[in-house]
Nucleic acid binder design. Sequence first.
DNA 1: CAGTATCCCGAGGGATACTG
DNA 2: CAGTATCCCTCGGGATACTG
Lengths: 108, 108
Amino acid sequence: MAYNIPVEATLDVIGGKWKVVILCHLIKGEKRTNEFKKLMPRITQKMLTQQLRELEADGVVKRKVFEQVPPKVIYSLTDYGWSLKPILDNMCSWGESHIEINGEEVVS
Amino acid sequence: MAYNIPVEATLDVIGGKWKVVILCHLIKGEKRTNEFKKLMPRITQKMLTQQLRELEADGVVKRKVFEQVPPKVIYSLTDYGWSLKPILDNMCSWGESHIEINGEEVVS
DNA sequence: CAGTATCCCGAGGGATACTG
DNA sequence: CAGTATCCCTCGGGATACTG
């Protein structure tokens, strides 16, 4: 509400500290919570949950809970979330072409 | 340095609180400081200067000072900054198509 | 394994005043 | 007009412990 420029609406959805990173990972496929933790070694449990909940509330991420022990939760993009793909793809490739990557933390 | 995923490099450059908004305005043409203030009524002088300085340090924004009284400063995109255009265009149009805009503060 | 609940610190950023 | 300098306070977010 009351944006001064439309792009602020976009930032409302993907502007969070970790949201773009999370979404970029989800473009490559659905993920479990622990997978996110390994892909983002610096994120805390608290922030991970928080960012995912906000993305879910905005309708771009879907959360599927498997009722079992131990618990299993899978996150994926919604159709609405996939509409962000062009933006995310562009951001990813811009980063790839403008910076050298350091792969020190690619845990399997 | 030491990114876990390339897109973090992109976020380093455009991830600031107001940077995407500033860059979107610059895509439509160079701007003076006061123009920014009118386009972004909620930004403070401090934040405006700070974000512009960081964009300048990252080489995406160019600052041109006219030595005169009263002072005149014009900001514009560098060639490097223009390489972000596809991302910014996508973000702008996504916002346009997904949210209704409120134009209450379009001062001339 | 996935998530919630507390505690708590520090810096991000607002408000204000001043300068060239 | 454009920018710097202070003061100061909120709250983002880290660390830790606990639950289903």
